[in-house]
């Protein structure tokens, strides 16, 4: 029993050590601007632009549900224009960053881990090194920079679309006028609502890309290894999103 615990603890410490080593390598690779700068635009398109459809899809339905749920919950005791307040606050502070973050943990995190994992087991990463490239500068930094910079853009769009969907649902399905919805939306609005959501999105992008890259480059053992590390990257990213969500709420609110 003690042996089992000791082995587990040793495994965690070793994993932490590897993650620390990886972070240090990535940080040092930032100096190799000539390698990663030109590759970042491609990753911004793959990670950011190509994620827009799923973000829009999620935010449309979330906005509609939020409007209907808030109206149902108020049951006439709270003025209906508070639907706008609820939709706006919930989308900006929580649901746009977290739901889009979770969806992109699957889409982006899995994509990065599987791609880099396949490159690792087929020796393409070793080949990069023998061609005198630093794999962290070539593979990791462009993805991390792209995810960190593009997640806030995707989430900003999701916030806007979600509130738009909530507004359309309110005026078409509830007895709420556009001026009343806007009045509610502006009632307790602070600019902090927006940047709080965007800071969270940025941190989610950073963590999802780092985890995907670390898991991908740590892959061993062929197709099974790629599958294992990809699953692990998605699960760990989703967990980290929830941990970061709570962290930012404690620190910034």
């Amino acid at each position: 029993m003690y042996n089992l615990v000791a082995v587990r603890v040793a495994g965690w410490i070793s994993a932490l050590g590897r993650a620390g080593h990886f972070l240090s390598d990535v940080t040092r690779s930032l100096r190799d601007v000539g390698t990663w700068a030109g590759l970042t635009a491609v990753q911004m398109r793959r990670i950011g632009v190509q994620s827009l459809p799923i973000a829009v899809f999620i935010s449309i339905f979330t906005g509609i549900v939020l409007a209907l749920l808030s109206s149902y919950s108020f049951t006439g005791a709270v003025p209906l224009y508070f639907v706008g307040t609820f939709v706006g606050k919930a989308m900006m502070l929580e649901l746009a960053p977290v739901l889009v973050g979770l969806a992109l943990a699957g889409r982006v995190g899995a994509n990065i881990a599987a791609e880099l994992g396949t490159m690792r087991v087929t020796e393409q990463v070793d080949a990069l090194e023998t061609l005198a490239y630093n794999p962290h500068a070539y593979l990791v930094v462009p993805r991390v920079v792209a995810a960190t910079s593009m997640f806030p853009v995707v989430v900003a769009l999701a916030m806007a679309v979600g509130m738009g969907a909530g507004w359309i649902a309110s005026i078409s399905l509830l007895e709420l006028s556009t001026p009343d919805f806007v009045k509610g939306l502006r009632l307790f609005y602070q600019f902090k609502d927006v940047w709080f959501g965007l800071v969270k999105a940025m941190s989610f992008g950073l963590v999802i890309a780092l985890i995907g890259c670390h898991k991908g480059l740590s892959t061993r053992g062929g197709a099974e290894g790629v599958g294992r590390e990809t699953t692990s990257a998605v699960v760990l990213s989703a967990e980290m999103i929830l941990v970061l969500d709570a962290f930012w709420a404690v620190v910034l609110l």
Partner: peptide
């Protein structure tokens, strides 16, 4: 160091078992 390794690798060609081409 990193620079020395880059210089060394520029003088060595490595042919991998399964080619390791960038797909």
């Amino acid at each position: 160091d990193r620079a020395g390794l880059v210089e060394l690798r520029s003088q060595i060609g490595f042919v991998f078992q399964f080619a390791a081409l960038f797909d």
